[in-house]
Design a protein around this nucleic acid. Sequence first.
DNA 1: AATGAATGAGGATTCATTCAT
DNA 2: GATGAATGAATCCTCATTCAT
Lengths: 195, 195, 195, 195
Amino acid sequence: MPKLGMEPIRRDALVKATIAEIGTAGTLDVTVGQIARRAGMSSALAHHYFGSKDQMLLAAMRHILNLYGAEVRGALSMAATPAERVEAIVRASFSSGNFRQETVAAWLNFYVQAHKSEDVRRLLGVYRRRLRSNLLASLRHLVNDPDRAAETIGALIDGVYIRQALRQSPIRADETIELVLGAVDLLTGKADDKA
Amino acid sequence: MPKLGMEPIRRDALVKATIAEIGTAGTLDVTVGQIARRAGMSSALAHHYFGSKDQMLLAAMRHILNLYGAEVRGALSMAATPAERVEAIVRASFSSGNFRQETVAAWLNFYVQAHKSEDVRRLLGVYRRRLRSNLLASLRHLVNDPDRAAETIGALIDGVYIRQALRQSPIRADETIELVLGAVDLLTGKADDKA
Amino acid sequence: MPKLGMEPIRRDALVKATIAEIGTAGTLDVTVGQIARRAGMSSALAHHYFGSKDQMLLAAMRHILNLYGAEVRGALSMAATPAERVEAIVRASFSSGNFRQETVAAWLNFYVQAHKSEDVRRLLGVYRRRLRSNLLASLRHLVNDPDRAAETIGALIDGVYIRQALRQSPIRADETIELVLGAVDLLTGKADDKA
Amino acid sequence: MPKLGMEPIRRDALVKATIAEIGTAGTLDVTVGQIARRAGMSSALAHHYFGSKDQMLLAAMRHILNLYGAEVRGALSMAATPAERVEAIVRASFSSGNFRQETVAAWLNFYVQAHKSEDVRRLLGVYRRRLRSNLLASLRHLVNDPDRAAETIGALIDGVYIRQALRQSPIRADETIELVLGAVDLLTGKADDKA
DNA sequence: AATGAATGAGGATTCATTCAT
DNA sequence: GATGAATGAATCCTCATTCAT
């Protein structure tokens, strides 16, 4: 039991506990006590490390966005053509790391929180702009109206996410990915009509 | 001031105040006191009529879904061909009555609430099945895989909604409708490739 | 048990309980719970009527200052000559209503609180200016340097108060008054030297 | 860095930090953490040396009283006549060392603390008795009723102190000293009437 | 029908204090 | 000697809900 350097360990545990607790409860209405208990410490210690509940929520959100960003970057690094790049982005969005019940639930709640917190709004904006610019860079080579295509794909991804948040049965990422990719094919003219 | 028959009036006022308050706050974290004050009565009376806060939220949700359902039915009644029927559904989804900032905010919050309340989950399920069957009935005549098309359009609508919830500027329903209809055209093969 | 018009009753009870509790504890470190319990209600109700603990403390202070002001006014109204007026002010300052253990303890604590609260500072300033101008109006007719005399008497009164706050035995207002009046006589030249 | 003999250094630093912190905050509501940080150490170490927060406050108070006592003794040692001795005591009370904003604030707070702590009460009693006996020893040669005169001067000094605690502008010790000495002159019959 | 009155339960946050290293 | 780690206890405040009138 090392008594030094606990801070990163505790912070990490709290961030993960926060996400898990939100995922389980399906709400941001989780108490600091619940989170701390799940992370194996007192609520006082949680405050000691994060200062406030809001900061904890924010850190959890950053964590999720970072994971997502890393996943996208990794997928993009292995894609060669524009079409592959678009597909990589979509696949990363529904990768097993991101598209988990609890992550999705947290995600949905952050959308709500954006109404109350400037910080959350900003973070969500960063995510969206990044997704958009990633898509645009590739779609530019594939379609006449890349802006509209990017917006459509982005909205479709978000829509699938929100629907996922409601589902109770285990998740079928593959079906979902196929659905979105099918739409992408249509948008880029790769698909046969009346598919 | 007739003292009889106040019940429907009061209930209606409360439902509308609930939606307005959620829309303004952007959260379900609205107190009964706030809602009651906006509806011009005491919080005790609100409880008298609804029994609990949850029942009030549920009633508000039913109200929104009813409005939406009516709008869709109205639009459908004037559509002749399958293609027109699909377009009618999409247009109704973004009609001025439904696609208002506060309604959208409430909608988003109901998605969250679905995790906590069986009733809310059920209501949301009803809405989704209805939308799905409406779309299916028409898409059956237009595409090879109506299930997938219905799912795509449904997800797209939800995605546009959730994104709307974040926007701060006033709403542009027309752009949004065009975006979704463009996707519909692609799905149904009406559009030229590489649009 | 009337169920209407409780507000003034409750507020009054809380103000008195606040003073009593501060007097007993000798500190401003009294909890809202303690005060509310002494006033015979829940702490939630106390918050309902006052909004915050600070507001309760402020109300208690206003109450004490009002009592003091009324006492002084009453005494002044019966004084004819300038000398009598000065004596009336001194006597009122140590009247049984003001010079009670608990009131004095509260008073002392307000002096401390003045460092933290702009409102308290302001109230204390009002009291001091009022005392000063009352004294000045009379001393002008009695001494060459009324400013200095007023300052001396004011400081003496405050000093006697603060010392009273420490005493544990019951209070001897008469001795105290005599002490201060003796000093006043010296200042106004009424007393024999080497008294 | 010698590790031996740190105790007196640490204790001294903590005592001074305590006084400074109380002076800055104007309250006894100072956390051990604040004090320790100002003294350049951890709060755990502060507890190691003092055992409890109360002991730290007590030590701070002793420190102030010791400084005051030394100052008075020094001044007395240079005074020849009874009148000079009284003046020396007064001057020492308002010497630059004692009559500083932060010291006065601490002083005031100790008066409050006396209600809660037997130890503080005792210390304050010691101070008062010492002041009283010092004054009495000299006043015995100057006035008919030395007890009353001592009490008056003591109260006046305390009163000036408490008023000082409220002032926001920098301190004018000279004016204050003159005020008190003027009263002393009156008490001892040295002054002209109607001064 | 309507409301002011009232509260219990709960939650975020703070802090003195202890302990292991 | 020194400190980061850790917590229990307390406190202010909020809110859904109940009740008497």
